[in-house]
Each structure stands twice: as structure tokens, then as C-alpha cells.
């Protein structure tokens, strides 16, 4: 290895400083909020149109090469299924999206709600992952690299929507399984996800997230009696790529309406700011304590020496 002398150190330092000055010309902003990629895509889901045909589930299964389900996709009895604690169906390692039925008193038909990854602007799964397996692509998808996953499952703890599933059944290669918005096969090429394209009722609209938000609010304005005045996903946990319109209050169809508008990472930042302080202050502080509390011994040592 080349030995670093004073001269080469100075040279390196100067070069580094110059490089920093060159790249540092970024526009400064008041707060370090990410807020999402400007041109990212999204999907607007209008629950008032969904009839619960489960075509989207079938399309997802085919597109993602998932195993054949126990009950066929035209079997309506799955809507009566209940999991532990009376919870409705949820995305699993074998199904990245599911449709659930909600019987609403006073509504002509039951409401059907599709569940899948919401593709957050600032995903909690991504920020909690200690091997950086997750990536938010500029197109808007939150994708995942299974080849580096250690299986700590912190992302499942962190996800406010309980989306990531885990292939517990595998002993050799268990990984996280979730909707990737068909990134590899479709989104990358500008095409809508399989579920969106397959829907016979046009429940879902694919487009730029910013445009979809305008569309959603326009729909609410034009039909104020029909829709609840809330686009779920516009602000929740920092905004999500998937946006929802409903004619039934969101908390009655299984949405968590208490998530707040801050991205999950904001709650963790309070600790993260402590880290550099402890790292820099503690060594001097505690060595100082040591010198203080041992000053008598040190004095004695000096006296015996002289």
C-alpha cells in the first residue's frame, strides 16, 4: 500500500475539497423533505365501481407467476373467509393482491375493496431495511431485492399497512413477498400493472400521481353527494402512489385513518439524531470523567516517581 505522507495528504484534501465544492452546487431547500419523485406514476382506485369479480387477483397471479390458489378466482366464497382475530383476507406470499367484501348497512350493494402494496412516497419498509433491499423507483414502484434479504422482517414491523408477506414455509430461501406494481414486466416500460389493465369495470386509473390527484378531487367536486371528501393516500404517511376514492367512510372499510401524514421515518429521526452526538461527545466526556475521578491516584503515582 502507498504510504500517506504529509504532502500527499494535503493534495488529497485539496482535491476532495474541490470535488465537494463542484458537487455542492445543488439547490438548497429549507427542509429536507423528499415528498416523492415528481413524475412518479400511480393508480387511482374508485371503490364505487368495483363489483368484486376478482379478475385483478387472477391477472396478478398470472403476471407474477404465483402458485395456483386453493379456490378458483371465480369462487365468491372467499369473501366469507376470516383469519385470526376475525380479520378479512390479506395479501400473502401466494397472492400479492386480494379483494375483500364489506357489507354496509344502507348501501344498495356491498362494497368491494382491493388490497395491495400502496407504494409509499417515503416507504417505511425501505427506510427500516438494514441491507438496503428495497428501492423506490422514479416510476413510483417500491421494489425489493430478494438476493440480499436476511429475513429480519423489520419491514413487516415498519409497514403501516401490514403489506409485506414472508415465505415462512421455505427453509432454504425464505424472502419477503409483495406487490411490485409489475415493475419488471410492465411499469418499467410505461405500461400499467396487470390488475389495472385486466379490470372489466375500469375501477382503476393508471397515470401520473400528480394528475391522478387532480382527477380524484375533480370527481369529488363533481359528485359531492356520492364520494367521501377524502382521497386516501394523498397525504397518509407522506403520500402513496395508490390513491382511493370511496362512498363509505374509509375507517368502515378497514382503512387505518389514524396513521397521520408524516412518513414513518420521521418518528425514527428523533433517535437517529442522537447517534452522532453520542459518538462524538461520549469519548471525551467519559475520558474526562476518568481523569477527574482518578486524579488522586495519578498524583500519588507522580509523587512516588519523583
Amino acid at each position: 500500500m502507498k504510504k500517506i505522507n504529509r504532502r500527499s495528504f494535503l493534495k488529497g484534501g485539496l482535491a476532495g475539497g474541490a470535488a465537494l465544492a463542484a458537487t455542492g452546487a445543488k439547490t438548497a431547500s429549507a427542509a429536507q423533505d423528499f415528498g416523492g419523485y415528481p413524475d412518479s406514476m400511480g393508480v387511482l382506485v374508485d371503490f364505487t365501481k368495483c363489483v368484486g369479480c376478482r379478475t385483478c387477483e387472477a391477472a396478478c397471479n398470472k403476471e407474477q407467476g404465483l402458485p395456483e390458489p386453493e379456490k378458483p378466482f371465480d369462487d365468491q366464497s372467499v369473501f366469507d373467509e376470516q383469519r385470526h382475530g376475525g380479520l378479512p383476507r390479506r395479501p400473502t406470499e401466494k397472492a400479492y393482491t386480494v379483494v375483500n367484501r364489506y357489507n354496509i348497512v344502507g348501501r344498495e350493494h356491498p362494497l368491494f375493496r382491493k388490497v395491495q402494496c400502496n407504494h409509499c412516497n417515503e416507504p417505511a419498509c425501505l427506510t427500516s431495511c438494514f441491507v438496503n433491499a428495497y428501492k423506490k423507483t422514479p416510476e413510483g414502484a417500491v421494489i425489493y431485492d430478494p438476493t440480499v434479504c436476511v429475513g429480519c422482517r423489520t419491514c413487516m414491523i415498519a409497514c403501516p399497512f401490514y403489506v409485506p408477506a414472508y415465505s415462512y414455509s421455505s427453509a432454504i430461501n425464505p424472502v419477503v413477498k409483495k406487490c411490485i406494481m409489475c415493475y419488471d414486466t410492465r411499469l418499467k416500460f410505461g405500461r400499467p400493472p396487470a390488475c389495472v389493465e385486466a379490470c372489466p369495470q375500469q375501477v382503476m386509473t393508471f397515470g401520473k400521481r400528480s394528475e391522478l390527484l387532480k382527477l380524484a378531487h375533480q370527481k369529488i367536486r363533481q359528485n359531492p353527494d356520492k364520494y367521501v371528501d377524502h382521497v386516501y393516500g394523498e397525504k397518509e404517511v407522506g403520500g402513496t402512489a395508490w390513491l382511493y376514492l370511496s362512498d363509505v367512510p374509509f375507517d368502515r372499510i378497514g382503512f387505518d385513518t389514524h396513521l397521520g401524514n408524516q412518513p414513518i421515518i420521521n418518528y425514527v429521526k428523533e433517535f437517529l439524531t442522537v447517534v452522532p452526538m453520542v459518538l462524538t461527545i461520549w469519548p471525551a466526556l467519559f475520558t474526562g470523567f476518568h481523569l477527574l475521578s482518578n486524579r488522586k491516584d495519578a498524583k500519588k503515582n507522580e509523587e512516588t516517581k519523583s
Binding site: 427506510t127 427500516s128 431495511c129 438494514f130 441491507v131 438496503n132 433491499a133 431485492d145 440480499v148 434479504c149 436476511v150 429475513g151 429480519c152 422482517r153 423489520t154 414472508y166 415462512y168 430461501n173 425464505p174 424472502v175 425514527v268 433517535f271 437517529l272 447517534v275
Partner: peptide, 27 residues
């Protein structure tokens, strides 16, 4: 015992680093 793939325990150290995560610090 808990990790899905315990043989990848050193991944956060050397293979794929996610330094902004709290668990990275713990590891």
C-alpha cells in the same frame, strides 16, 4: 434462530449496506 436466512448475517456488514436503518446500527 429467528432470521429467515441466518447464513446471511454478515450481509449488512459487507454485502449490502443500509446504514440509515436502526437495525444496521444494532447489528
Amino acid at each position: 434462530v429467528d432470521l429467515g436466512q441466518p447464513w446471511r448475517l454478515i450481509y449488512p456488514m459487507f454485502v449490502s449496506l443500509g446504514p440509515a436503518a436502526v437495525l444496521f446500527l444494532v447489528a
